[in-house]
Simulated scan of single mutants.
Amino acid sequence: MAVSVSRDLTVQVLEDVNAVKLSDRQQALRAAIQKGEPKCLGVSQVMLGLMVISYSIPLHVTEITEVIHLGVPWWSGLTFITAGVTAIILDRNGSIKTLRVCLLVSLVSAVLSVVAVIIYSVDMNRNSPGTCDKTPSSRCSMKYYTMNMSRGVKTSLLLFTLAQMVISSVVCFLLFRQRSSFRQYTSLSDAAPSTPTSVSPPDLN
């Protein structure tokens, strides 16, 4: 905080240099974030989340497996949507606090994507369609067709989840790099006045 004293003993509190640096860094942070286009990545995450949830609906009319028992498409899809909405908010409000929240949500999304990929892979390995058991009418059993459809849907969900894992990892990398660049300014506060103020000396008479 800079202070100047005039000849009439009037004290002026000048603009805080740290506050100016913080404001400049926040503007630079916003510009750096927008270069990474978090809005586009956020929209992609929201779309993937909606697709995961909508594509999982046919699984409820087929044989219920571990994927449905654990509700993987639902919690993973909602996590993707949350991460996307947070990235869109970050594009509009490029503050360090919002960056931290978006980084945390994207990290959770990436971790849950890995968990979902593992569950999909294990489920598809355990519940393979098997061989076609011919019925007297020379057609495969209904279970064979439903398991094939279920496997196809799970393959699509697995691909969507892999895409989400890549996007979340990219977002985490970009945000962590920006956070590291501005870490030294996170402890600064805007307690200092933004405009000069004057303090008159007390009247001793």
Rank of each mutant, 00 (worst) to 15 (best):
V52M: 14
S200L: 14
S106N: 02
L104K: 11
H69F: 11
V20Y: 04
L157D: 00
S54C: 10
L175E: 02
V199T: 14
L14A: 09
I81K: 08
N93Y: 09
S180R: 13
I119Y: 06
D91F: 12
L175R: 06
L159I: 07
F160T: 01
V61L: 09
I68Y: 01
N125C: 05
N148V: 03
M124E: 01
A32G: 09
L14D: 15
L204W: 08
T62P: 00
K134P: 00
Q184W: 04
Q184K: 14
I167M: 05
V170W: 05
K21A: 06
L78Y: 07
G49V: 12
D203N: 11
L158T: 11
T98A: 06
T161S: 09
S187K: 14
K97V: 00
G71H: 02
R151K: 05
S138N: 11
S181V: 05
V117R: 10
L107Y: 07
D8F: 08
V153F: 05
V46L: 07
S169E: 06
S187I: 09
S181W: 08
V117T: 00
K39S: 08
P201Q: 11
N18W: 03
L14S: 13
S128I: 02
S141T: 13
S198F: 15
I57H: 11
L204A: 07
T197Q: 15
D24Q: 09
L204C: 08
I53H: 12
S106M: 10
L188H: 13
T86A: 13
R177M: 10
T161Q: 04
N148L: 03
S95E: 01
S189F: 04
